[in-house]
Structures are given as structure tokens and as C-alpha cells.
Design a binder for these strands. Structure first.
Lengths: 222, 222
DNA sequence: GAGGCGGTGGCAGCAAGCTGCCATCGCGCC
DNA sequence: GGCGCGATGGCAGCTTGCTGCCACCGCCTC
């Protein structure tokens, strides 16, 4: 890593990013900002835990802001992770406009911008030029302000269900047993239950009761 | 049965009522009106089916109005029966003020008024005097107009739940397994499930999913 | 045609839920 | 005390729901 703050450095692959810029991420004292289309880009095994650990040392509590596209809510693991992150005090928002590039901002001093995959490896450009970082920061802020709080988003944006899912929902809502419902929908018992399981994942429900609750809550019925 | 229209006849017990006044009930051509505190008074086995059958013969469709107190909604069998009756075209309303006496009105011509139990047998007085029947009719109409449609009533009057039922609901809504929920509430598994079963009866739900749906629908959560 | 891939469905085994039956216990009442 | 009544909880057996595993099928690609 050069000492010239106006020299951008591009690292290839997450491993190199972690090795050579990990300390930058850990150096956050005031604010840690992260924008990404999905959760995959910043997986960085092991680093998250160290960041989480580092937070305990900071005198002024670290402000953590995470901005994502709606598709992070598509799979259950991501939802669980987001919920956990939010529970630890991070602010999480969802932005319906496409996020340009995956971005990290540390204390308004350092920006790390992800590039496209090149030969299966993603490039990460570490930027320290104050003007560049500032303008990235203000772009982020604009997107952040336009985005909606995770909880609010989830409350007002029910997951989009296909035709079949809605028919499964109707069967469940009518109180039919699985066997009858499957027959009525022309599905095998196995497949019907697969659908129900998918639905429950989608609704973040641990039981059918809960699923019913949420289905009504999100206005997915009738 | 006397031919004098101004002579009231009191019949003792439902059997006698059915035997000697059953034909009056079946003679309804225009309107059949029934008000009762509960469904027990007019059980009259076999008669209902015959009334239902008779309706097919009537040239102008028979208007059926039934007025009940809220407690008919307390037990599941009554609810099912009411739903069935309503589905067959009867108008069903719920009246929150106590209904004075069980009453039947046939075509504005005949009134049958139930009295108290005497020696375990209820008396039924058949009235044909036009003035009396008219005034009973107008009293009924007043109560009818003040009452609310069954569907509307059920939508706006969620069943009153005890403290414990609400805690059971909370457990269900939190997605807990029965065992965990029972432990948390300090109940045995058996009793917890009894509570759940009661709750589901109360909510008219054939499955836990449905119960969740209704619970949210009736605003019984959070 | 070979092979991969996604969706389906049968099966089996387990987990969870449901309910009838009965013993028990507390409580009010005679 | 004796009795009945309602609530509780243990037990057992059954139903329902859940899921991993595997085989199969249709489709696409090479």
C-alpha cells in the first residue's frame, strides 16, 4: 500500500483485500458505511467478526450503515443475517434503485469500491483522495436518504408471490389439510409441502400459525 | 287448535309444539322470522329440514330473518349452524341488548312466543290476534333494525380473550414450539395444547395457519 | 447421444400436534 | 367428612406435518 493518498490501489480478490486493506476496515472509529446489491460481495470470512469485536473498543459508538437492494431479502440466510446485524445496532436500509457499485466508506476517510469480476476475481479499489471520498460519501448519503428503513420496507413491501404460491396460501387459509389441498391443486403431497415450506421461509415464519399471522399482516390474503 | 283467532293456545314442550303447530311453521309463504337468545330453544329436531325443504315450493322467495344474542357465537356448533343458515340465504343479525322472549313470526299472521320453563318443560303460546301479532312484529323490527349483520358483527367484535389465552396467542405468534411455549407459560404440554385447541375453536380455525390468519384479522395480536 | 440441471414425486423416518382416557387435586356445598 | 365439579396433567396412540434421500423426467447444451 502506497503512502501517496492520491494514488488509488486496486486489489484483486477478497483474500488480497482482506490481507492488505483489512486493517483499514478495522480502523473505523466513527462511521462504517456499506452499500451493496447483495450480501455476497462483502462476505470476507472472518473479517466481520473482527469488525464486530473492534466495535467494543470504540469510545464514541460506531455508526454502522448498510444499504442494500431489495433482492437481499430474497433468500432466508441473508434475511437472517440482516436481522442480526440490525439487532446489533447497525442501521439497515433498502434502496429500490439499483446500487451502482458495491461501496465501503470508513470514517469519511477511505472508500473501497468494488469493480466487476475479471477472470472470476473481483477488483477492489481503495481510494483515499479526500475529494473523491467526499463525493462518494455524498452520493451514498443521497441514496441513503432516499432509501427506507429495513423494518419499514418489510412492512410495506410484501414479497411478490407467484400464482401458485397464492393458491397454496388460499388452501392454507381455508384450513384444508395438506392432502386435500394437494389434491385440489393437482400436486403431489410432497410438492405441496415443498411449496408450503418455501412460503414459510419467504414469510420468515417458524410455524404455520406465524405464517398465517404474517400472511394477513402483509395483506397477502383475499 | 281452536278456530277462534283471538284465543291464544299454549303448548307444553317442543314435541307438542311440533305436533300441533308444526304445520303453521311450514305454512310460511312470505316471511319467517325468529328471535332467540340462543339456538337451543328452537331446536325442534326434524322440523328445520322440513322448513328448508318447504322453501323450495314458495313462489316468492321466503324471507328468513334470524335475530340472536351474541352468546350464540360462543360455541362452535352454533357458529357452524348460523354460518350454514346464512349461506342458505337467511338474514342473520346479532342484537347486543337482551332479547325479551324467544319469538317466531310467520308471515305477520302468527306469533309463537316461548315462555319460561315450567317443571322442565317450556311453554309455547301461539298467537293469531292480528293486533297482537302486529305489535310483536313491530317490536321485533325495532330490535332487528338496531342489530348488526352477522358478518359485520363478527368482523368488529373479536371474541374476548382471557389473559392466558392472549399469552398463548403470543407464544404461537412468536413461532415457539408447543413444548417451549408450555414451559415458558408454566403449563403442562397437555394443558397448553388444550388452550390452543380452545383458541382455535374460538377463532373457527381448522388449522393453526388459519388461526394465525384470523388472529391478525381480528387484531388480537400486538 | 451423453451429460448436466431444475422440477417433481415416492418413500421413509422423524418431529410436532391432537385428543381420548383416566388419575389427581382443589374447592365449594351439603 | 363426603360428594360433585371443574381444571390439570400424564400417558398413549393416532394424525398431521416436515424433510432428506433418491429416482425419474423433460429440457437444454455440448
Amino acid at each position: 500500500m502506497t503512502v501517496d493518498p492520491d494514488r488509488n490501489v486496486t486489489l484483486r480478490g477478497e483474500r488480497e483485500l482482506v490481507e492488505r486493506a483489512g486493517h483499514l476496515l478495522l480502523s473505523a472509529e466513527r462511521e462504517f458505511v456499506c452499500a451493496a446489491g447483495d450480501l455476497k460481495t462483502w462476505s470476507m470470512p472472518g473479517l466481520r467478526a473482527r469488525i464486530a469485536g473492534a466495535r467494543h473498543r470504540t469510545a464514541p459508538p460506531l455508526t454502522v450503515r448498510k444499504l442494500f437492494n431489495p433482492q437481499v431479502l430474497d433468500d432466508e440466510e441473508s434475511r437472517r443475517h440482516l436481522a442480526e446485524v440490525a439487532a446489533r445496532g447497525a442501521q439497515v436500509r433498502i434502496c429500490t434503485t439499483g446500487l451502482p457499485h458495491e461501496t465501503i466508506l470508513v470514517d469519511g476517510r477511505i472508500a473501497i469500491l468494488a469493480g466487476p469480476l475479471v477472470g472470476g476475481v473481483r477488483g477492489y479499489t481503495v481510494v483515499r483522495s479526500p475529494d473523491v471520498v467526499r463525493s462518494v460519501g455524498s452520493l451514498f448519503l443521497a441514496a441513503w436518504d432516499a432509501a427506507t428503513e429495513l423494518a419499514e420496507f418489510r412492512r410495506t413491501h410484501p414479497p411478490v408471490l407467484g400464482q401458485e404460491s397464492r393458491r397454496v396460501l388460499a388452501m392454507l387459509g381455508a384450513g384444508h389439510k395438506d392432502e386435500a389441498a394437494a389434491r385440489e391443486l393437482g400436486l403431489s403431497l410432497r410438492t405441496y409441502r415443498r411449496r408450503v415450506a418455501e412460503l414459510m421461509k419467504l414469510l420468515d415464519a417458524g410455524s404455520r400459525f406465524e405464517a398465517g399471522l404474517r400472511a394477513r399482516e402483509l395483506g397477502l390474503t383475499g
